[in-house]
Amino acid sequence: MKRREALLSLGAAVAAAPAVSADTARAEVVRNYPQDMALDRAFQPPSVRVGGPLTVLTDDSERRTIGAIFDRLIPADEFGPSATEAGCIEFLDAQLAGPFGQGAALYREGPRAPDEDKMVQKAQFIATPRERYATGLKALDAWATNKHGAPFADLEAARQDEILAGMENGDIELAPEVNTKAFFELMLQNVREGYFSDPIYGGNKNMAGWKMIGFPGARYDYRLYADRTGQKLDLEPVNLIPKD
């Protein structure tokens, strides 16, 4: 009989029994620290399912277009795989499906003043990032078909680069309802995030992004290496939930 097991369990004892607080009329005396050290599920990163169906980017032509854009922004080369090979589409899909896609952290109530972009020195949107992707990608394909006779993904790489450069420097306006420059910036930001964030979020597959730039990953402590300045350390990158 392990009769003392629960009786002596520290967690239960200290959490439930502040041994010094007799006076119930006063506020409860908190002794020591919270005993429960399990990670609160609310603080855990949402894990992206790998290989499952996409939930937001379900339209084939939309997905082809964003894939083509991402792979021009980060193409495959001798340093590493392309953005789509590294899982940036899965990353973006998961982000658009969650609070980021809903613009949960953004103020999106009216009124919309005409000069507010200038006032806050940053483009302002009532639309969510998810809506901006849907509108922007459609507008891009319409613009490409109109101007070059084919959707963006079917154009030559040099042509694609030219269009992206035009979007970036403000020479191209896809449609009146699309802030083209801001849409380009949104895509560039997201593809970088996908390529370099922890693989748990869907991108940076096999830590390709980290290996490319020599980032050692989610290590806790670098004191072992702190005095080895100027040396090549060749640290194997470590992700948050590794297979090994």
Partner: peptide, 14 residues
């Protein structure tokens, strides 16, 4: 939680 030495501490046995 009933007061000092007031008992009611649960002890689980097999």
């Amino acid at each position: 939680d009933k007061g000092v030495f007031a008992g009611a501490y649960r002890i689980s046995t097999p």
